[in-house]
């Protein structure tokens, strides 16, 4: 024991307060500075950098998402207007073709009527001509008969 006067005699008790107290306080303060430069600062830098990175990325993604939604809505309205336009063109074309068909039909009808009328007139005129000729021939014949009867008498 005496060889180690480093290890002193035993005394004290549970509440033996001595220079351990201020030295321990100094040790803890020193530890605070050491841990600050060794642990809190570097880890804090890394964590906060990452948090910043993540939050800016989230904001960016949100912006992009809203942009996408805007574009989507725009495209949707474009699509709808295109659809309406197509509908309009189709119905227009239908109307047009309907009209053309009706016109053509009317024209054909008219033409047919006209040629029918013409044929009828022709038939009529030919009929009357034939009738005229027939009555004329009948007249001639009756005259001939009459003459012959007269002559034979």
């Amino acid at each position: 024991m005496l060889a180690f006067n480093f290890f002193g005699a035993t005394e004290g008790g549970l509440f033996d307060i001595n220079a351990t107290l201020p030295l321990m306080a100094i040790q803890v303060v020193a530890l605070t500075y050491i841990l600050n430069s060794l642990f809190f600062k570097p880890v804090g830098n890394v964590v906060e950098k990452r948090e910043k990175f993540v939050s800016t990325n989230i904001i960016e993604a949100k912006n992009k998402l809203s942009e996408v939604k805007k574009l989507e809505a725009e495209l949707l309205t474009q699509l709808q207007s295109a659809r309406a336009e197509a509908q309009r063109i189709v119905s227009e074309a239908e109307n047009e073709s309907d009209k053309l068909y009706k016109e053509a039909l009317e024209l054909a009808n008219n033409e047919a009527n006209a040629s029918k009328e013409k044929a009828r007139l022709e038939i009529e005129s030919q009929t009357s001509a034939a009738r005229d000729q027939l009555s004329k021939q009948a007249d001639d014949l009756s005259e001939l008969i009459v003459n012959r009867l007269i002559l034979e008498k």
Partner: peptide, 12 residues
């Protein structure tokens, strides 16, 4: 306690 004596001061 394990006492350390440094000069006049004693430490645990």
């Amino acid at each position: 306690h394990l006492y350390w004596q440094i000069g006049n001061i004693r430490l645990h």
